[in-house]
Design a protein around this nucleic acid. Sequence first.
DNA 1: CTGAAAGCGCTTACAG
DNA 2: CTGAAAGCGCTTACAG
Lengths: 332, 332
Amino acid sequence: MMHQRPRISDVARLAGVSTATVSRALSNPALVSEETRAAVDQAVQATGYRINHAARNLRHRRTGGIVALVPGLANPFFSQILSGIASVLAPAGYNLLVADTRSAGADTLLSYAEPSRADGLIVLDGTLPAAGLTRMPVVLACEWVPGLIAPRVKIDNREAAAMAVNHLADLGHRRIGHVAGPPGNVLTEARQAGWQEACIARGLTPDPALLYPGDFGLDSGQRAARLWLDQPKDSRPTAVFLASDEMACGFIGEVVRHGIRVPQDLSVVGFDDIELVAHIAPPLTTIRQPRNQLGRIAAERLLARLEGRVDDTDTVLPVELVLRGSTAPPRG
Amino acid sequence: MMHQRPRISDVARLAGVSTATVSRALSNPALVSEETRAAVDQAVQATGYRINHAARNLRHRRTGGIVALVPGLANPFFSQILSGIASVLAPAGYNLLVADTRSAGADTLLSYAEPSRADGLIVLDGTLPAAGLTRMPVVLACEWVPGLIAPRVKIDNREAAAMAVNHLADLGHRRIGHVAGPPGNVLTEARQAGWQEACIARGLTPDPALLYPGDFGLDSGQRAARLWLDQPKDSRPTAVFLASDEMACGFIGEVVRHGIRVPQDLSVVGFDDIELVAHIAPPLTTIRQPRNQLGRIAAERLLARLEGRVDDTDTVLPVELVLRGSTAPPRG
DNA sequence: CTGAAAGCGCTTACAG
DNA sequence: CTGAAAGCGCTTACAG
């Protein structure tokens, strides 16, 4: 859709120099004399010239685009990560292309991860096949793809889960339940393992009856709550640690509707600290992930890679247990 | 980052034809003979050829990109709209570039809206200056920029607000408050006007004391709740209609913390129907916007425009009042 | 410091 | 139906 846009040759003609000189004056001003630079600048002003990225990209054999592969654009958890990514990509002159790994087919995703479309990849979905992701520099953020060697920006999910369990154990809870994430997800495994280990370390039993299936989504939290409600009162957990805040919201909503009081009758700890959970009643005690920072660092590490600085170490960001109103000592 | 990727000339050599023929076989197979097509297909397979988009775009004088300008990527309201946009853009061969109008500077935004970066624009932020947005085909979604002539995909915000007010009036409420959106926003004005008009139509007074400032965000809902709590019990509204669900969450959280029961002591209606509000306690009665559909239709109309079908009419999508647990007749 | 020229990898009138 | 050739709008060794 480029109409009659001025080209570099128009600028050159007006400034009385060659196109090569205009190009240099624009991209590497130190290379030309001061007068030339001034003449070119003036001609740029006069013509309203703006560079044509497609031409420049073709010449540079790059695309200027970075693709973020997100499992569910509609998931509020990812929007702040994207926000962080965008905030470092834009100043560096890269476009952020966003692709939803849930709504797009495998072939669409592969076509996004194509060298002529993007220069690099930020993968936020750990369930993608590693094979398709090796065609360009890639950074893994939050989730990671087992077997894919690439820098990862993540948190210590095991430790984070242990923080939640320890908080509940400190309050005096002896039966601490866990609502897990989707099966096969690396985060699910790490958080569940953290729950299990921390329970054992505190002399508690991570009984299978205390473990509920989930998928990070609201509805699965609600389903877990129904399972909990169906359990005998004297053997069900007095506290539940859920692998996502969304599930925690669904869980609390459902038990409250059945007359359970949180935290008096049941303590709940979530995971993520999405913005909203500070404002529900009761405000949710949860594990805060530095989402914006996760995005920024992932983008920075990808840029470093694109500049040739290769470094496959992991960046592990600190999490924080945010104490709010959804946890209390068990009754009696 | 394109390594030693096969070019169209490699395919041509292998297939024993010219590059022109390969190009035709790929983009317009009907133009070549069946044998040629087969030979080319085979050569494509053998070489693993994939098209170079930068070159094709340069030649076509297009970019293959569509930019969505979003006021706050971290806002869950927009993620589902983006999801809808992406779902029609991807099959059509367009990249979705996402830019956050809050975190990016004005110049960055203008550089996004540049013909050599993108072929079209979907604007979700009504507070942008119209001037910078006229360089390429544009579609306005949800919000709109006053004075910018372009197809709009929206809902009837006035009517939607009236639906909320009528529901509360039907329940018997006589003092219905309103928490407005950010000043200067087109949605704010339309929803506030709808509240006002509907109150008057029902014989109620949209008293200034019933109107609270807000900005769509959670915190502003909380602040509005504090104002409400400070008002004398016998003159404050018995029901509140808020211009966003986020504000409604903040509002409810705060009043519940002060011992107010929703809906027994106070009825609350939100706006948007973000996923989470069905799961909080009480589940929120709200106005549902068809967000995914809004995104899809905006994208479709932009594609139509790019294909030369110009049509500046508005698309108005229906909203729905979703009755849940946050509204009830007033006490006594 | 500057210019002429080649080339990035495609597509498409034009001619046959 | 097919090929030779020009060109999309830049950039960059190369030569001066």
